[in-house]
Simulated scan of single mutants.
Amino acid sequence: MQLTFDATDPGALATFWAEVLGYKLDDPPAGFASWDEALEAWGVPEERRNDKSALVDPEGRGPRLFFQKVPEQKVAKNRLHLDVRSAVGLEGEERMAAFEARAAELVELGATRVKRFEPGGLDAGHIVMQDPDGNEFCLD
């Protein structure tokens, strides 16, 4: 399985999500020590070398994440978003404190905090964030 992100800067967005999820950049193809070496050998011009990037779960359990360059900015709310599990097993204020700590870390990486939803009813509480390209995700 692979999830694909449209991005204005695939390399930067891949770096952000690698930090958030504990993923790593996809290894270069066999026979190449780095992606730069492979792209050079394939004749890819320098200005096109950030057109794509990919991440993989180092434990091999999660989906591959693919980032592709698009010319336009994001203009509407995502119809699909990721929930970044940041307080598994916690409840109430302890849960929200864990979200606040994680939100602060992610803001340092380039995320934007959008809104905090307090616990109540069927909602155990969460924080809506945006990645550096404006894609919504939740700390849940």
Rank of each mutant, 00 (worst) to 15 (best):
Q2Y: 08
L3M: 14
T4M: 11
F5T: 07
D6R: 07
D6W: 08
D6Y: 11
A7C: 12
D9N: 15
P10V: 00
G11T: 10
A12Q: 13
A14P: 03
A14E: 08
T15Q: 14
F16H: 08
F16A: 07
W17D: 05
W17R: 04
A18P: 06
V20N: 12
L21N: 01
G22V: 01
G22P: 01
G22R: 02
G22M: 00
Y23T: 09
Y23I: 04
D27W: 02
D27I: 02
D27C: 04
P29F: 05
A30R: 13
A30W: 02
G31T: 05
G31K: 07
F32C: 07
S34L: 01
W35K: 06
A38I: 05
L39P: 01
L39E: 11
L39G: 02
A41V: 05
A41P: 02
A41R: 12
G43L: 07
P45G: 02
E46F: 00
E46Y: 01
E47H: 07
R49D: 03
R49I: 03
N50D: 15
D51I: 09
K52Q: 12
S53L: 10
L55S: 02
V56D: 01
V56I: 15
V56F: 11
D57V: 00
P58N: 10
E59D: 15
G60E: 01
R61L: 03
L65G: 05
Q68M: 12
V70R: 06
P71L: 00
E72S: 09
E72V: 05
Q73Y: 11
K74W: 03
A76K: 10
A76W: 11
K77M: 15
K77P: 13
K77C: 13
K77H: 15
N78D: 15
R79K: 12
L80Q: 11
H81A: 12
L82N: 01
V84T: 00
V84C: 02
S86N: 09
A87F: 06
V88D: 08
G92S: 06
G92D: 13
E93Y: 00
E94C: 04
R95I: 01
R95K: 02
M96K: 10
M96H: 10
A97N: 10
F99Q: 09
F99E: 05
R102G: 00
A103F: 07
A103C: 09
A104D: 12
E105H: 09
L106G: 03
V107K: 02
G110D: 04
K115E: 13
R116T: 15
R116S: 13
E118L: 10
G121Y: 07
G121L: 10
G125N: 04
I127A: 08
I127Y: 05
M129F: 06
M129G: 10
Q130W: 03
D131P: 10
D131M: 05
P132T: 10
P132H: 09
D133H: 08
D133K: 03
D133F: 00
G134Q: 04
N135V: 10
F137E: 07
